[in-house]
Design a protein around this nucleic acid. Sequence first.
DNA 1: GCAAAAGTGTTGGTTGTACACCCATGG
DNA 2: CCATGGGTGTACAACCAACACTTTTGC
Lengths: 239, 239
Amino acid sequence: MKAHRHTAHHLSEIPPGTIEAISIDCLIFGLNHGELKVLLAKHAEGISEGKWGLPGGWVQEDESLDTAAARLLKELTGLDNVFLEQLRAFGRVDRFPGTRVITVAYYALVNQEDYHVAAGFSASDVMWRNLEDAHGLIYDHDEIMDFGFDRLKHKLKHEPVGFNLLPEKFTLLQLQEVYEAILSVRLDKPNFRRKMMKMGLLIPCNEKQKNVAHRAAALYRFDPIVYEKLKDQGFVFEM
Amino acid sequence: MKAHRHTAHHLSEIPPGTIEAISIDCLIFGLNHGELKVLLAKHAEGISEGKWGLPGGWVQEDESLDTAAARLLKELTGLDNVFLEQLRAFGRVDRFPGTRVITVAYYALVNQEDYHVAAGFSASDVMWRNLEDAHGLIYDHDEIMDFGFDRLKHKLKHEPVGFNLLPEKFTLLQLQEVYEAILSVRLDKPNFRRKMMKMGLLIPCNEKQKNVAHRAAALYRFDPIVYEKLKDQGFVFEM
DNA sequence: GCAAAAGTGTTGGTTGTACACCCATGG
DNA sequence: CCATGGGTGTACAACCAACACTTTTGC
């Protein structure tokens, strides 16, 4: 993968062909060693030079908000085909210095295989940070982060999205750790496994872990097709 | 209440001092005779003259999105101090004819006391319509309505917002009917009452219904302070 | 007294929680 | 053979759905 440099994550000069009043900001969640992280970008210019914020950019005339968010995510981190969903628009009058800019915030969930790719992409001006240590960001990005984290917690309980933070094939304990990390709870292993399995969303890969110093766990993957089918029948995910 | 006329709910010419690319649309829910309604506005000019859509307008330079939404709601319907929350931004490229306009959608819950006020405010160019009959709106307003209705259903189950559709003081059966109307389910009266009462969110008014042809029901009101307090203690609303 | 809704009680099944226990694997 | 996590079984408590039943009010 070729790393273009996109130092200006929030431009002082707005490039031509972009909608002036609207920006996009991406709150990117990743998991590493059982800890929830967010990807931050360093500002290259302007009055907030050197400060950290969420990666973002401008919306082009010929692209939808969703498309713009996906494009920016790709440009700034190299990430593609990840879970990406709009949070909401943030529009305080004084949220952006100088001009009036409304931002549409998105959040993304990055799986552990892509985790290192994302971090290495733009090298020094992008970094993963523990959620608790990530405050003190530019503009209203602290607010966006808090809102997004609340949304993530809620989403995790009511929709099967935890998988997106794991590799394609994962064990039940890995999945449980996602819940424990994000919701800061301790869960009972046997009960978690039963509850999760009973929903029938996990497809067994008929494979086991290798080279582990204990009994190898079965690997599963999540099938969105099965989930859609169940949802149509009135099934509601709940953890 | 003095009724200014605001015929141009979606302007063809954008007034000066407003942010050009951004509009606000309000999805206003109301309850009447146990049926969920939405408030629609008729377009006065432009290519969509005579068609129905959600009431909306433009954001001013000196107001936040939330403020703009509240102002527009007041201007278009006379409603004030109602439940009002952002849904999300809608930004398809071709959603608006001519120029590129991104809209930030809000939804409001109107209590039954204000219901008639809202309908009468702008007389002929505003009307309440049953949700099922309300499709065929301009722009992407069908999509906004569907999204908003899903959000309402979800919200109702996970947060105490049903009260906003009722008068200040209401009976348990009225509240139950809110749930039945919106979620299209039939609920067991004794069980509903117990479940709701056990949460302790309803404050008895120590008053009863009057002039009803059956045993008068106790009246309750919802106390947001109590709810905030409980939430801080880890309580989660669930119906 | 009858209709209609308010409100209470009871019961049986389901679900969730806590925890004891055995199994496999590498060091 | 021990540490570590994988995985199964079970028993008690809490909860929920269904429905029988009594109460109050206007006509």
